[in-house]
């Protein structure tokens, strides 16, 4: 069974981004970029499925600027077999990415697509669900446990009030939550091996997809700054403040 794993290159999760002074966006020049953490979990899950003998081939795919190659090499160092870069300098929004991925799915015919539930830059949480809709497939979002048996995926999902388990007919879409697994570190030999793996390059036009943005960002602002308050000396002082100053208890 072929598994497709889309991955996104984002600002590293340890970086606190700054809004540009002209309010046109956030400053990502000279900032460390990494694979979106939820995408790493997706790659790891696919690799585990391959180790269990469920998956036979893992294809990583990324859409965006040329540097996304690094993210794809990283996915291959974790264990993806080959990679596809859909290269464009256009700002890609989730609907456009879902359409690009659908075109790749049509070509590659995977039985399973595993994606991160959201990217930590735009925090959209849309692409997996959109891809599922475009393909007419079932979806299991926010997965914390995945089991594949025959033609059925049984997935436990993290919901607002606890956990829910659903079963999906393959092919299907799964989006990963934090507790699904802990991604392995890529070892040096695997990083070296990844450099020799196949990385195909294509353009959105070759896939026949219009990626023009539907949304325009008019401006980006700093959120209102929260003032750090005071340190209180002891528990009694804290209670006094909460009762008489903040009046919240």
């Amino acid at each position: 069974m072929k598994v497709l794993v889309p991955v996104k290159r984002v600002v590293d999760y340890n970086v606190k981004v700054r809004v540009k002074s002209d309010n046109s966006g956030v400053d990502i020049a000279n900032v460390k970029m990494s694979m979106n953490p939820f995408c790493e979990i997706a790659v790891e899950e696919a690799v585990r499925l391959k180790e269990k003998g469920v998956a036979t081939e893992i294809i990583a795919v990324s859409a965006g600027v040329a540097q996304c190659q690094e993210t794809l090499r990283n996915a291959m160092a974790i264990g993806a077999d080959r990679a596809i870069l859909i290269e464009t300098d256009v700002e890609l929004q989730p609907l456009a990415v879902a359409k690009l991925l659908k075109a790749v799915v049509d070509k590659e015919q995977p039985r399973l697509v595993i994606l991160g539930k959201q990217a930590i830059d735009d925090d959209a949480n849309q692409t997996g669900q959109m891809l599922a809709a475009l393909l007419g497939w079932g979806q299991a979002t926010f997965a914390s446990k995945v089991e594949i048996a025959g033609d059925v995926a049984t997935v436990t999902r993290e919901m607002d009030g606890g956990l829910e388990t659903i079963s999906l007919k393959l092919p299907c879409i799964i989006t990963t939550d934090l507790r699904l697994n802990e991604p392995r570190y890529a070892t040096l030999p695997n990083i070296m091996k990844a450099k020799k793996k196949e990385l195909a390059n294509m353009k959105p036009a070759e896939l026949g997809v219009d990626v023009a943005p539907r949304l325009t960002t008019l401006r980006v602002d700093e959120p209102p700054k929260r003032q750090g308050g005071v340190k209180v000396a002891d528990v009694a002082a804290l209670i006094e403040k909460l009762k008489n100053e903040a009046k919240v208890i």
């Binding site: 930590i120 830059d121 949304l215 960002t217 008019l218 401006r219």
Partner: peptide, 11 residues
Amino acid sequence: IYAGNAYATVK
């Protein structure tokens, strides 16, 4: 966006 470290106005 970015974990609430920026607010985007989108049209």
